[in-house]
Design a binder for these strands. Structure first.
Lengths: 112, 112
DNA sequence: ACAACGCGTTAGTGACTGCTAACGTATTTT
DNA sequence: AAAATACGTTAGCAGTCACTAACGCGTTGT
């Protein structure tokens, strides 16, 4: 898969990116947060490197993975170009409609 | 595929969502914007309906597809929860670094 | 030094994806 | 009214994905 946004969107990889937001981690450390094997996580990480979202640093027998700022910047740009004004308008309209028709889940008023 | 964000991220579907931002369209109208067949587009649209991002209205022998505001709102929420503060910080740092080291593509100064 | 272990990566596979080809159905056209 | 046409959906398939199992290679313990 080549598309940056699509690669970043897969649920496991999304979570990996978020976890790496707070600093570099090894495969094993990351895998501890998931139900799947180290191997699966390793492959996700390699793919994320392929598309330029991650970097790796070797230290002893561990490899420390971290976010690549350039890749993250690129991802942000893609997201911004996708989410255009028309979509924002639609969200605003949906919010208004919800307050008219009665909210489906969260009442609009403050808690008493 | 069940994950809303992942479904929305596929390049063809991303473009479909953007095209539908300006109003409802038929399968044929939408397919005119792509290299692939009507059939392929139809299947993407059905998937987008499955995850709640689209609605369809039948009229004559055409089906008019349009964005479902509720789904789009949900998508926005997912995106916002994914893109946390740490990632924004990283992007800011990357921008600073680029201006120190010499910009790779776009010079930071205004055009003379 | 050699055995045992820990870490990360490749091999192999079932399931799924996105596509074209074939189809069903409704609407025109003659 | 029958034939042709336009629109959208299903059938079938090659390629890809995400995963577990098996592996290679450093490192650590004895």
């Amino acid at each position: 898969m080549l598309d940056l946004l699509e690669v970043a969107s897969e649920p496991t990889r999304r979570r990996l990116i978020q976890l790496l937001g707070s600093g570099e981690r090894t495969v094993t450390e990351l895998a501890a947060n998931f139900a799947v094997s180290r191997s699966a996580i390793s492959q996700h990480l390699l793919l994320l490197i392929d598309v330029g979202l991650l970097q790796a640093r070797k230290d002893g027998r561990s490899r420390y993975y971290s976010l690549d700022p350039a890749g993250i910047t690129k991802l942000k740009a893609l997201l911004d170009s996708f989410w255009n004004t028309e979509l924002d308008l639609l969200v605003a309209e949906a919010a208004e409609l919800a307050s008219f028709n009665g909210p489906p889940h969260q009442p609009p008023g403050e808690k008493p």
